[in-house]
Design a protein around this nucleic acid. Structure first.
Lengths: 364, 364
DNA sequence: GATTTCCTTTGGATCGATTCAAAATAGGAC
DNA sequence: GTCCTATTTTGAATCGATCCAAAGGAAATC
């Protein structure tokens, strides 16, 4: 594998033969002094400093090569952001973009760089994680998250997993209070008088989709999904409604399975008056589908999302949703990496309900 | 089991004194052999390979440190993307995002990583450029572009400027044919029968804004702006219209100066029936402003943009514009860096006209 | 038993810098 | 001119790997 990569790398590039040692020799000083001229100029005598600088200029020396410096210093001054998705995920996905904006802000402030690490296939991903020149990783755990975390852990650098359902207490993670967020969403709807609910869920376990029976909710492999279901059903039960009456459909957070879910829900004898979507993406897809099927939101059906992506503010109608502090998550993740002290901590951030126009009392 | 993982974790993450040499010693082989186990396992005898791997496992060695490998290999396998804007520019700006998607695609394909390099202030930027661990740079030249290019050039690595107006033939650049694009835009409007034009221009020179007289167009410092003006006026002249009749207002590609420009244009005795905006951003701002002032597009005034950002497809009305092949630019830039052979080449890509709903024949 | 071959392993050199204890030099005081 | 203290400069050691010429060893051939 290494050989393959290596071959691919052997692109013809003009190398820069001028090293610090060359400059030192040309200026007639030791390399130690030459180094000082660039890294601690104040301790070098003026005359010598000028001589070295002149020599550097003449040889076309562009300053100390960061590779050497970095090897010595041990620090790279860059944070790796990893995901198992293709790289364009960082620029396309609304959730990722807002988190990245938060990461950017923190990196700007601290002067750290950002390295994007990802890959289509597993082998490539492993290689990229192992060879990324970074001081730590922020890991976007989506599908295949456990594999990604495993690879990152092997690397032995500080890292923090962004959310999403890991029970493993030995890894640092940063997430939101999914139970509380889901409660908030469901309580908002019960408060409006809804009694007939459906959940468009994310995956319970890798790749699963289709109708789900409530008892499975308790055994879901993905903790995030499990917690959100628990929150939804908890608030619904508190309103005196039988949680067993709630229809649950597991989607893959994409259009196809969400459409299938909606068809399933509205083919039911008792179609829901309120839809709890476990992501804004699903909620927005639902909004479009409902509009296309002559079902008016929020008059006929209320829809509530989860995430708080910007798109939700400009949808028709604007989406009521549970807002995660995405930018804050990004900022905080950077802080955790940069101040890593060996302690593994798991942090939970609070969510807020953004009440917009996609929820209303049920039709009578 | 959990305890084992836990122990390994703390060993790995706290400090990592485990070097390849340690593994070699523990396994009773030379460091050369140990290195081969990881980089060229096939040339090591099975028994020895297993012994070394076992030793590595026992010591909690996470594989060869990329810093060492990289220093030796000279290659980092990452491309730096630089701009003088804050880092979040890459995730917020529509133009940047589409270009980044193209860069991502090419990097995914070739297995290269992406390093984002930027900084608020000049000193920070200089340091970041000088110390970025990359094999080459793609430079987003916006404001302050010349300084950025200067810094990048000093670094002595292959780089390509994503054009926006540099005359300097000694730097590799990748841009679009601004003259042709502008011609396309203006010709579309003259073809619809317009005879009364205004241009909402980008900067002619650093920081300039306000009304502009055509002769200044020829002396503009920013070649991109100059070329677009030349294209606009060229096509207008070919339609038998006096270019001197075209109102030109220089904006900073922001809301404030664009609004000022629009006020200026519509305070004129002969307000334009067609607005040539030099960026989609300006065009979209204009669309909003016009709607807010009771001017209907395209009935009263036609607006045409330049860039082809996704937002233009969903605006009201959808924006007719000159589409730059943004993703293609990103892809091509990566290819240029990875296949850099010392030759400085300047490439020009072709633009296309996307006719949507913001242009129509002028009111009679 | 000596020679040749083939396959493994070895260990020194190298990549390009920084660091630091020790040596050299400068400057000042007597 | 000598001695002493600051200030500069030196050069070996280090960071963590890879590369490669040469050495070692086992099997095959003469």
């Amino acid at each position: 594998m290494g050989a393959v990569i290596h071959e691919r790398l052997s692109v013809e590039t003009k190398i820069r033969p001028v090293r610090l040692a060359d400059v030192a020799k040309a200026a007639g000083v030791s390399h130690g002094t030459a180094s000082n001229v660039f890294s601690r100029p104040e301790i070098v005598r003026d005359e010598v400093r000028e001589r070295v600088k002149a020599a550097a200029e003449k040889l076309g020396y562009g300053g100390p090569d960061p590779r050497g410096r970095m090897l010595r210093a041990g620090k790279v001054n860059a944070i790796g952001v990893a995901t198992a998705e293709p790289l364009c995920y960082f620029f396309d996905d609304p959730f990722a973009r807002v988190v990245m904006a938060g990461i950017s802000e923190a990196c700007d402030r601290t002067g750290a760089g950002i390295s994007l690490v990802s890959a289509a296939n597993d082998e490539q991903l492993a290689w990229n994680i192992r060879s990324a020149l970074v001081d730590g990783f922020i890991v976007f755990c989506l599908e295949g998250g456990s594999r990604l975390v495993e690879l990152t852990r092997e690397r032995g650098l500080p890292f923090v997993a962004l959310d999403f359902g890991f029970d493993d207490e030995t890894i640092a993670a940063l997430g939101v209070d999914d139970v509380a967020g889901a409660r908030l969403a469901a309580a908002h709807l019960t408060g409006l008088g809804h009694r007939c609910f459906a959940v468009l869920s994310l995956e319970f376990d890798e790749g699963g989709h289709g109708p789900v029976f409530p008892d499975r909710a308790r055994t879901a492999g993905y903790a995030g999904t499990r917690d959100r279901i628990a929150g939804y059903l908890g608030a619904i039960a508190e309103a005196g409604i039988d949680p067993a009456s709630v229809l649950i459909y597991e989607t893959l957070n994409d259009e196809a399975t969400t459409h299938a879910g909606l068809e399933f829900l509205f083919a039911s004898e008792t179609p829901p008056t309120a839809i709890l979507a476990m992501s804004d993406k699903v909620a927005l897809i639902a909004l479009k589908w409902l509009a296309g099927h002559g079902i008016t939101v929020p008059r006929d059906v209320s829809v509530i999302g989860f995430d708080g992506v910007p798109e939700g503010e400009i949808s028709m109608p604007p989406l009521t949703t549970v807002v995660q502090p995405m930018a804050e998550m990004g900022r905080r993740a950077v802080e955790i990496i940069l101040s890593f002290d060996g302690a593994v901590r798991r942090e939970t951030l609070q969510v807020e309900l953004a009440i917009r126009k996609s929820t209303a009392p049920p039709p009578r």
